[in-house]
Simulated scan of single mutants.
Amino acid sequence: MQIRSVLLKIVGVLSLLVVAFLPSQQSFAAQSSAVPAWLAAHIGYGDGQIAPVVLQRARALYFQKVGEGAVRNPCYFAMDATRPGDMGGGRLGRRFYVICEAEHAFRAIPAGHGAGRDLKGVVNFSNGRQCARNFGNAMDSELTTGGAYVTAETKTSYKGYYRVSAGRDAAFMRSFVQFDGEGEAANARRRAIGGHPAVVLRGMCRMRSPGNPYAKDGYVVLGKLVDYSAGRSNGCTSWSPSDARQLIPMIQNNPTTLYIYPESRDIAAVDRAVAAGQSLAGGPYWDASCLKQIGAPKFWRTGTLEPVIAQYRRDHPAPHWKPLPICEGQ
């Protein structure tokens, strides 16, 4: 009995030590509630600043996932898709945020929003390059979905070759970071939503390259490398090639959180305020310059839009597949 009593005491002491060294949900909640002064200096509505509601939700998501043990990365991401992407004159809006609180580091960079689509004669839910009006989570909609995400695996794949200089070509390998979403963004993996460099091959042809490991029937794809950092994406978050080279290694095998604003509730609140002729001062948030341009935002729900897209696909089948042409001079 005496030995059993001693053992129970030892177990009790060890349990207390484990609990003492485990961070509690309350401690993370307390840590996330107070914005440090150095970070508060970046709050605002100008280019490169972060709106209060965006930072608040991004921090809450990050500290929640840290508290759950799902994230250990010292940095987290946020994006404000209500701000302009292309500001004109060759300037890009800085609306994607990289925040590393332990290092007192805050960085704002450009990022692309979902282009949406114009189903001719049926419905138009496309977005311009400068401001996004349409948001949604339907398959094949190419729209941005706001909400909570955690970065997942990174895949790097071969896309073809591009000409570096006369007589010299290079393989184009593009990395893609998968996002796993929650709530209305829960179908992010099914939609292949993630982050990647805003670079693509255009004007492709087949170049003879026997023995090349990427060759198919003795040919590889050759195209022109196009940087569309000032453009739109197919629903993903796109970064400039230089920014992507810095961001992707930060989260490779080290997931973190990404919060994208706005969610459907924000869009609905802004839409109601606009319809009622109310000022957004002190109410729901939207970038003022973009709201002036778009009039009012709209969220397209899966149940509404997916049947329309599916019917459009049936009515407009893809053209018969044709192989790429042979490159000139082959």
Rank of each mutant, 00 (worst) to 15 (best):
S238L: 00
A148D: 15
Q26K: 14
E103N: 12
A198Y: 03
T302S: 11
F106H: 10
L22P: 04
F106S: 06
F125R: 00
R59I: 05
N137P: 00
I326M: 08
Y161M: 06
V54K: 01
L16A: 10
R72S: 14
S233N: 06
K159N: 11
C290V: 04
A188I: 10
A20S: 12
R168G: 00
A70R: 15
A288N: 09
P323V: 00
R208Q: 14
K216A: 09
V221R: 01
I99R: 15
L119M: 03
L16Y: 10
A115M: 11
V53G: 12
A186M: 07
F172K: 07
S27G: 04
G147D: 10
P297K: 10
W286D: 01
R91M: 12
V19H: 07
R191F: 10
A111Q: 09
V71L: 12
F77N: 01
Q246K: 15
P36N: 07
P319K: 08
R189Q: 14
D80Y: 12
G167C: 07
G295Y: 01
V98A: 13
Q56E: 13
G147R: 05
S279G: 05
S175W: 12
Y149T: 14
G93N: 08
A108M: 11
Q293C: 08
Y158H: 15
A102H: 13
G295R: 00
A20K: 09
Y62Q: 09
A269L: 02
D86T: 10
L17D: 07
F63M: 11
S27K: 05
I193Q: 07
I267R: 01
N73I: 11
L22Q: 05
I10K: 08
E328K: 13
Y214M: 13
H42A: 05
Y161I: 11
L305E: 00
T156W: 08
A215V: 09
V199D: 14
G116V: 02
G194A: 09
G235H: 03
